[in-house]
């Protein structure tokens, strides 16, 4: 997985953040944007790209053991696809504690209602970000201590 900023390929085990699209979402540019945003905040990123089925997400998460998993979705099915993804992740004991967040345009009718956000957090998401919450996402990221260059 190549860095969009430096062009370097970090060894997979050094990726700190696993970034992924959702199973039915073919959009790429939102994920390119998020990767840049995360790299600008100093994180190493493994970006799985669009249309990632839940079993593949679980497999990659087990292999990379990231410090954070970020799902991005803009096709309106993010609520449904996100539920499936996070349930599959939380079903694995090794992934019970890793922080998992989702953001983007998650519903077909604008921002999600409080009830639907609660469904997502009940299923295992630590945070749910709406389309306009980039600022909140960036400040959430600041909780994750940056890798110190050796």
């Amino acid at each position: 997985m190549r860095s969009l900023i430096t062009g370097d390929i970090p060894a997979p085990e050094r990726a700190e953040i696993l970034l992924s699209g959702t199973s039915s979402d073919a959009h790429t540019w939102n994920l390119v944007f998020l990767q840049l945003l995360l790299e600008e905040a100093g994180h190493r990123v493994a970006n799985l790209g669009p249309c990632v089925p839940a079993p593949l997400l679980v497999e990659e998460a087990l292999e990379l053991a990231p410090r954070l998993i970020v799902l991005g979705s803009v096709n309106g099915h993010g609520h449904q696809d996100g539920l499936q993804a996070v349930r599959a992740l939380r079903a694995r004991p090794e992934l019970a504690l890793v922080p998992v967040v989702i953001g983007g345009k998650l519903g077909v009718n604008g921002p999600l209602t409080a009830d639907r956000v609660r469904e997502l957090t009940d299923a295992g998401f630590d945070e749910v970000f709406g389309d306009a919450d980039i600022g909140a996402f960036v400040s959430y990221l600041s909780r994750f201590e940056l890798r110190v260059a050796s």
């Binding site: 969009l4 900023i5 430096t6 062009g7 540019w29 390119v32 944007f33 998020l34 840049l36 945003l37 600008e40």
Partner: peptide, 10 residues
């Protein structure tokens, strides 16, 4: 290459 940022990508 280093000038690609999340802000100027958008």
């Amino acid at each position: 290459r280093s000038s690609v940022t999340s802000a100027n990508l958008l």
